[in-house]
């Protein structure tokens, strides 16, 4: 519903103006709890690690 969305945006901007950080999104499975932003960073690192292992490295021009 658009009205609720606008209200949430307004509340977020008011919190930001007051210097209060947004509460954030948390994901949990049983006793395991993680903030969504932290999960993104960890998943991104794992993807970069795996890609670095398998992506061919370009050959330098004019090198031995």
């Amino acid at each position: 519903m658009p009205f609720l969305g606008q209200e949430a945006v307004m509340r977020g901007s008011l919190l930001a103006e007051a210097g209060i950080p947004a509460p954030g999104i948390y994901l949990g499975w049983g006793s395991f709890l993680i903030q969504f932003g932290n999960l993104i960073v960890i998943v991104l690192m794992v993807i970069l690690f795996v890609v670095a292992l398998f992506l061919p490295f370009p050959r330098g021009k004019g090198r031995k």
Partner: peptide, 14 residues
Amino acid sequence: EDQPSYVASWIYVF
């Protein structure tokens, strides 16, 4: 001026 051949991998870039 150069590195051993095994360094030609993305894992050595980080």
